[in-house]
Design a protein around this nucleic acid. Structure first.
Lengths: 170, 170
DNA sequence: CAACATTTAATTGCGCGCAATAGAATTGTG
DNA sequence: CACAATTCTATTGCGCGCAATTAAATGTTG
């Protein structure tokens, strides 16, 4: 298991240590391991439920869920660099490079080295990629109906999740 | 791309079709593709933020996030079959079998064929696996503090997410 | 009880997701 | 201007996550 720790791990020293706990705190937290599962796990389950709901719809247009997220961004913002895509979607080039190659192979996007700065690659939509947007509208309509909540509820939940994400990222 | 569609796809007929849309509805939904990204995407981002927060803590005990979820279940419920684990975590044997082999190789769990029904495999904790629980208490304490919300807020959000998951799964 | 159907775990194949690394282009500095 | 540091994309390796398939055990039915 390469990505997990070797016996001597710098992070043992480098990371902020868990605060020292009193026995009472330990008992309380120990009992909450169940609740812990319910907290992080509710997120895990909801995310996968969403992806399961999207899958049959996305299959019809031959897109995976992360590919769909990339297309959403491109439909919304137009041509973007790989780095900008990654920052917006919290993905790195290790994920995006092969994903974008597949989208290119499918004929939906074009990858072009920036002439001014040849380190950068600009991703832009092809006519085929633009045309997909009409089908995506139907997909969104179906999913929105499936959530069973109105626009206001969805916004409230979305804002709450963004708060949580921001808190976890600090 | 084997897992996506062939040109002739039974699901095109079999799945519930998106409702026919008036041009006005199309315009409204088209504008909402941005909001769509924000809805499903907030979930995507929050989930990954959580996993990023867990990762350095889990690295110290040589567990991945899904392995940690399995251990949480075993700490809570005791020995379980692979099928029960999968139903509780929304994972199938394709994911669990190799994951459990790695947990076994790490010495945390034991896999044993059920004597009464030899199709089933019962997963139980080893002393090493049970001992890990103490470290997990610290991990949970750190994460709970990081979320920045109290137990009540966490419960509200958890319930809301479970509602959403249930709605998406119908 | 023999043939067929169902249940269960494991395997295979592919697409992420991410750490680590490599390699090329650009920028900063003496 | 040469050279080091930085930026940016691509590659490699490993662990999921899931569909499809396989294989073994159990259930069911004629």
């Amino acid at each position: 298991m390469k990505r997990t720790n070797s016996p001597i791990d710098p992070s043992d020293q480098a990371l902020a240590p868990a605060p020292a706990l009193t026995p009472e705190e330990r008992d309380r937290l120990s009992a909450a391991l169940t609740l812990d599962r319910q907290l992080c796990f509710a997120l895990h389950a909801a995310t996968h439920a969403f992806q399961r709901a999207y899958k049959p719809l996305l299959d019809r247009v031959n897109l995976t869920y992360p590919q769909y997220l990339v297309m959403l961004l491109l439909w919304e913002r137009g041509p973007m660099g790989v780095k900008a895509l990654g920052e917006a979607l919290y993905l790195d080039s290790g994920t995006l490079s092969p994903l974008l190659k597949r989208l290119e192979a499918a004929g939906h996007v074009e990858r072009r080295r920036d002439l001014a700065d040849e380190r950068q690659v600009t991703i832009s939509l092809t006519p085929s990629g633009r045309a997909l947007r009409d089908r995506a509208v139907d997909i969104f309509g179906t999913i929105a109906a499936r959530t069973g909540c109105d626009a206001g509820e969805a916004e409230t939940l979305r804002d709450r999740l963004h708060q949580l994400r921001a808190a976890m990222d600090t």
